[in-house]
């Protein structure tokens, strides 16, 4: 063993040099095109960078927390934050529940053609979000859409899914759940298979019902999976953008404008880079809070 004070051996030197070359492309790319922009974003949020500053950045001035103060009094921002929270609060638990249900169906002992069902449930995950949003726009059509037609067959509707401010966000939640549930389903299946089979056998001998086994064996056994799936799903859902962009453009009456859509409009439609950057920082803080929560809960468990 060589202490840090002695000279490095030829092998160590050789490996150090190789490591530098192997890491250089990835680390340089990440530094220049990810870490520096993120830091610049934090700083731009403290300036009044706008369309006049794009040509000559010298025009931008340091304004402290003014952008944040303005966000706090901006009704459109609050509305967007509220819409996003609604999307997360409704879509998050619904997605997780549907994923768990699908996982239990696929993982059930009696299930035949397991790989086929798993593949079918997963297919929407890999489809292009923009195309999916367009397809559902037509499925939601108040007059010609397949969904209202099916509802009509059982005597319900018609619902103006995307035209009614009360229905538009739930309609987008439904699309997100349809598209995403297969992803978490795979993670739940892995979690279910990690629950020891002996526990179920012992419970069956004790005469526990299916519901009892679910409550006292399956759910506790899946707790770490729930934590991971719940937090990652919520973090992902806070970034919702393409569905409202394509399906509603944030309407009707701003009822589906999300935080990221608000950021996009501020930054790339009105070129208010300062406000847009401040919005991005708010998104970052929410995400960090979610990650911290996951970290804490995980620690409490162990």
């Amino acid at each position: 063993m060589s202490s840090p004070l002695t000279k490095r051996s030829p092998l160590e030197k050789r490996q150090l040099r190789a490591a530098l070359w192997f890491l250089a492309p990835a680390l340089l790319l990440l530094l220049v095109f990810f870490f520096l922009p993120v830091i610049a974003g934090l700083l731009l949020g403290l300036t009044d960078f706008d369309i006049y500053a794009i040509g000559s950045p010298g025009n931008a001035r340091f304004v402290g927390l003014e952008n944040y103060a303005r966000l706090l009094t901006n009704d459109v921002f609050w509305r967007s934050l509220g819409n996003t929270l609604f999307f997360v609060a409704l879509g998050g638990p619904l997605s997780v529940a549907v994923s768990l249900g699908a996982a239990m169906l696929v993982d059930a002992k009696l299930t035949r053609l397991r790989p086929l069902f798993r593949t079918i449930y997963f297919a929407p995950v890999v489809t292009t979000l923009v195309s999916v949003a367009i397809i559902w726009r037509y499925l939601y059509h108040p007059r010609y859409g397949l969904l209202n037609h099916i509802l009509g067959l059982v005597g319900l509707g018609p619902i103006d899914w995307l035209g009614d401010p009360h229905w538009a966000m739930p309609a987008i939640v439904l699309v997100a759940v349809w598209k995403n549930f297969g992803y978490n389903m795979l993670i739940f299946v892995a979690g279910l298979q990690a629950v020891p089979a002996e526990l179920y056998e012992a419970a069956a001998i004790d005469g526990a019902s299916g519901l009892q086994r679910f409550r006292h064996i399956t759910l506790p056994g899946l707790a770490p999976t729930f934590l991971f799936v719940g937090v990652t799903t919520m973090i992902g859902y806070f970034q919702v953008f393409a569905e409202p962009y394509v399906m509603t453009q944030g309407g009707p009456l701003g009822s589906t404008r999300s935080v990221v859509l608000f950021m996009y409009e501020e930054g790339f439609r009105w070129w208010r880079i300062g406000t847009a950057s401040a919005t991005a920082v708010v998104l970052l803080l929410i995400t960090l809070a979610g990650a911290l929560l996951q970290f804490r809960l995980q620690k409490d468990r162990t």
């Binding site: 990810f34 610049a40 974003g41 731009l44 990221v260 920082v281």
Partner: peptide
């Protein structure tokens, strides 16, 4: 955990 959107504008 850092969302890609944070660095997008810069």
């Amino acid at each position: 955990v850092v969302p890609a959107q944070v660095g997008m504008l810069p």
